[in-house]
């Protein structure tokens, strides 16, 4: 009895610590978003005077003014939003599907060049992106593929990072027995992957979807050098254009732009995070 009581006490103490830490971290995580949203309702000059404050004289008026500045530029925020959506969605779908497929090829089959291929993938992962982007741009330029959204989407088919992750994941959680039993049932290899393996990778896919979508949505470096026509601009490019006029930086509309940029991410993140939070049980996979 005494033992269980002390255990009980200990767990209450631990729980208090857990909640205190978690609440502090939660505040630190959310605060920047609140600052961002509240600054989008403040005037540029209010922000310049004190960027981290919730004070504003006229939130609705400022919001309207900031929107006018953002919308009054010669580019169109709605177009930017749609372009971003096309690029990020396309990138995510291609990256996730083909990474799973490649990872499955690496995990489930014995083939001669397998280890060499895996080594290659690990190698590609390590290549710094900064300078290869210039080579990429010049190649795209030579074949007249600048200002094409597909140039931002198609490279996602080869996402070495994700292949690496998916392979590690398969290694930890996929039993070949399941594949074998599907084979015995007469399913083709491609079918087995699509119908059995791919759905089983749900938790890994859900997390990778979020990471890819966020990364692609926020990507500025490559789109900025590849897309030079206004009708092809993505949302982050438009926001960065607001920032490039050093004589007249419109902080209010920059924060509004940043807020608008982040809202779809929050929506999609929350939509997908269900799969992480619920913790899809993998019972039956390995036994």
């Amino acid at each position: 009895m005494a033992k269980t009581q002390s255990l009980h006490k200990e767990s209450i103490g631990l729980k208090i610590i857990i909640y205190v830490v978690c609440v502090i971290l939660a505040i630190a995580s959310v605060l920047p978003f609140i600052i961002m949203f509240s600054n989008s309702m403040r005037s540029t000059f209010e922000i310049q005077q004190s960027s981290i404050s919730f004070f504003t004289k006229d939130p609705i008026g400022n919001l309207a003014k900031n929107w006018k500045v953002f919308n009054g530029k010669s580019f169109d925020p709605a177009t930017g939003f749609i372009n971003s959506l096309i690029v990020s969605t396309g990138t995510t779908i291609l990256a996730v599907y083909f990474s799973c497929l490649t990872a499955y090829a690496l995990y489930a089959y014995e083939w001669k060049l397998r280890d060499a291929f895996f080594g290659l993938i690990v190698g590609i992962m390590m290549i710094p992106g900064t300078v290869t982007a210039i080579g990429f741009y010049q190649a795209a330029y030579k074949v007249g593929m600048t200002n094409k959204l597909s140039m931002l989407i198609l490279p996602a088919i080869a996402s070495p990072n994700m292949v690496f992750f998916m392979r590690q994941y398969l290694q930890a959680s996929l039993s070949m027995e399941i594949v074998d039993s599907a084979r015995i049932d007469g399913a083709g290899e491609f079918m087995t992957f699509n119908r059995i393996v791919f759905p089983l990778m749900k938790p890994a896919i859900a997390t990778q979807c979020i990471f890819t979508f966020v990364g692609s949505w926020n990507n500025l470096f490559v789109p900025q050098i590849l897309l030079t026509k206004k009708e092809k601009f993505t949302l982050p490019i438009e926001v960065s254009l607001l920032n490039s006029d050093i004589y007249q930086t419109e902080y209010g509309s920059i924060y509004l732009g940043l807020s608008l940029t982040v809202i779809p991410l929050i929506v999609i993140y929350i939509l997908l995070s269900r799969y992480i939070v619920e913790g899809v049980a993998l019972g039956g996979v390995k036994s």
């Binding site: 971290l25 939660a26 630190a28 995580s29 959310v30 920047p32 978003f33 961002m36 979020i210 966020v214 926020n218 500025l220 982050p236 960065s240 920032n243 940043l258 940029t261 982040v262 991410l265 929050i266 993140y269 929350i270 995070s273 992480i276 939070v277």
Partner: peptide, 13 residues
């Protein structure tokens, strides 16, 4: 869990 990942959503800028 949802909140702790949030800082990763904002752009570096």
């Amino acid at each position: 869990k949802i909140l702790f990942y949030m800082p990763n959503i904002i752009t570096a800028a």
